[in-house]
Design a binder for these strands. Sequence first.
DNA 1: GAGTGGTCTAGACCACGAG
DNA 2: TCGTGGTCTAGACCACTCA
Lengths: 238, 238
Amino acid sequence: MPTRRHAIADDLRHQISSGHFAPGERLPSETQLATHYTVSTSTLRSALALLQSEGLVEKIHGNGNFVRRPLCRITYTGGTAALAPWTAFSAPLRMTARTTNIEAPNHLTALLGVPPRTPLTEILFTTHEGKAPHSLAYTYVPHDLAPAAPPLPEQIAVGLADRCSAPSEVRERVSARLPTQEEATVLRISSSLAVISLIRVATDATGRVVEAALFVLPGDRADALFTTRVAEERSPKA
Amino acid sequence: MPTRRHAIADDLRHQISSGHFAPGERLPSETQLATHYTVSTSTLRSALALLQSEGLVEKIHGNGNFVRRPLCRITYTGGTAALAPWTAFSAPLRMTARTTNIEAPNHLTALLGVPPRTPLTEILFTTHEGKAPHSLAYTYVPHDLAPAAPPLPEQIAVGLADRCSAPSEVRERVSARLPTQEEATVLRISSSLAVISLIRVATDATGRVVEAALFVLPGDRADALFTTRVAEERSPKA
DNA sequence: GAGTGGTCTAGACCACGAG
DNA sequence: TCGTGGTCTAGACCACTCA
């Protein structure tokens, strides 16, 4: 038995997908919609919450509810040894970088295998599509491996390749969760829209961690792909 | 500036983690809690919703709110060529299987590269910890590759290894989303707790799909790990 | 049947954004 | 300033679980 909020959400979904509400358009105010559907504003808001968690609608406080423009779906490609994070993405994306020198906070020491307060370089990559941020990647490298050059994305890749030895192993751990308040704000997503949290740790032949990266990818527009080829010699024995 | 529901959620979180409310215990009723915190029941319920989406509290309609027992965190290991799905999990888990013969529905034809209504064998694996279901895996194999043996997990692995050629490539696509109503019910999770959705497709040397598997893993207790070793010969060029 | 959570209401008051 | 969404209230009524 469908509840009212589901019925309203379904109706709005249809109106959006049919083009009755165009992408980027502002929906009627919540009061108007509540009157139209003859429900209370609370019920109407819970209907909109469903659409938000699907990434169909973006609320802007004091302004209105907007139909989200459909975004390019991007694929993070796993298993690449490249140190530059954006090379892992399939689609061409505008990317900005911001470099900060920090001392290793507690939650990073275990990941990087370094003592607390080790000098690190943090590089925050942000991908954009139009004005809307599309994904976040916090990258940490030991300070002596970090490029001295200004943090233009292309230069970082070259700088890293110059200074550090080749990674010999990359471990990527993927989990699903809801975004933190900060992530939701920066990515302009609902805090009820699931995100992929991906932690990538690259170690060189000596076992030293040469890079750790924390990716946050909105679930409505990103996924991660891992391809494994099996050597012919090996038996498929479970 | 923290809202009331966040303050209440924080307080309950502390009481749970400090052991004031024990795992498995039923919380006071929502009315009692609302009185205790001098808020309306709506506000109290929105505080509980926060704890639900963290997997700390399980609501049971008509019965009460229960502190969730902390569950073993499990890791799905990617990149394995094994066809038996449970071998991908790190922890020992109780698993049940249910086999059904079906005709390929539309959403599977593209995945498997077969015509509509191709005979398939669907195997639904469920892992359990105690009474609570822990994860779901829908596995599809072409009917002629499916084991004729009864669907005991161990026998399926043997049956598959006997009949089909070795997979030469495994593609695993990971995304994050909220569970469907059905998944939330079966897994006994809140519909606002993010899940990992993992689609694994194994193809043999001829390019034929020998297995497709759809995993649903609750985000509060599961993650996926992919390890890549880089051959020494290759350059780390981005 | 008694008690629990689930849905919904009609409204107050606050915080934010744009003109 | 005005209109928007954000938070919260006090309470009605329904659906479910368990004794």
